[in-house]
């Protein structure tokens, strides 16, 4: 693993996954997408990406719970939390639980790519 360019995307919204996959692959980032957190956690037992972009509110395990789990087991793995939720509380609480960055939806794709690249440099 010489370069850090593998990112996992977690969102139950297909169009968000699609937009992120497209924009990131254009920027030369390899992506794998997940619809739910349980699948992602399961795969984490076998391999690790360089960064994760996750929504907060999803069926199954929530993004914030996922973040806590990852923090505990993979403390060095940067996680970018996305949310369409308008309250600042979730942003504040994701910071306090150690999210690498916070990306409010709807986002600008250039910003999404820039945030991801910062996370990869950090990885």
């Amino acid at each position: 693993m010489t370069t850090h360019n593998s990112v996992w995307i977690l969102d139950d919204d297909r169009s968000i996954r699609w937009v992120l996959e497209k924009s990131l692959s254009k920027a030369g980032v390899k992506t794998v997408s997940f619809e739910n957190g349980d699948d992602l956690l399961h795969r984490l037992t076998r391999e690790t990406p360089d960064a994760i972009i996750s929504d907060i509110r999803m069926p199954g395990i929530s993004g914030l719970d996922l973040l806590s789990t990852i923090q505990e087991k993979y403390p060095k793995l940067p996680v970018i939390i996305m949310t369409a939720h308008s309250d600042l509380d979730s942003a504040v609480s994701s910071y306090s639980r150690g999210a690498f960055e916070y990306l409010p939806k709807p986002f600008d794709i250039e910003e999404a790519v820039a945030v991801t690249q910062r996370a990869l440099e950090h990885a």
Binding site: S15, W18, S23, K26, S86, K105
Partner: peptide, 24 residues
């Protein structure tokens, strides 16, 4: 309104992102 805002902003993310990708 908060629930509604959440439901609106998710697809907006898709619409906006797709439009930006198309523009490129």
């Amino acid at each position: 309104v908060r629930g509604l805002a959440h439901e609106i902003k998710n697809p907006l993310g898709g619409i906006r992102g797709a439009a930006q990708l198309l523009a490129q």
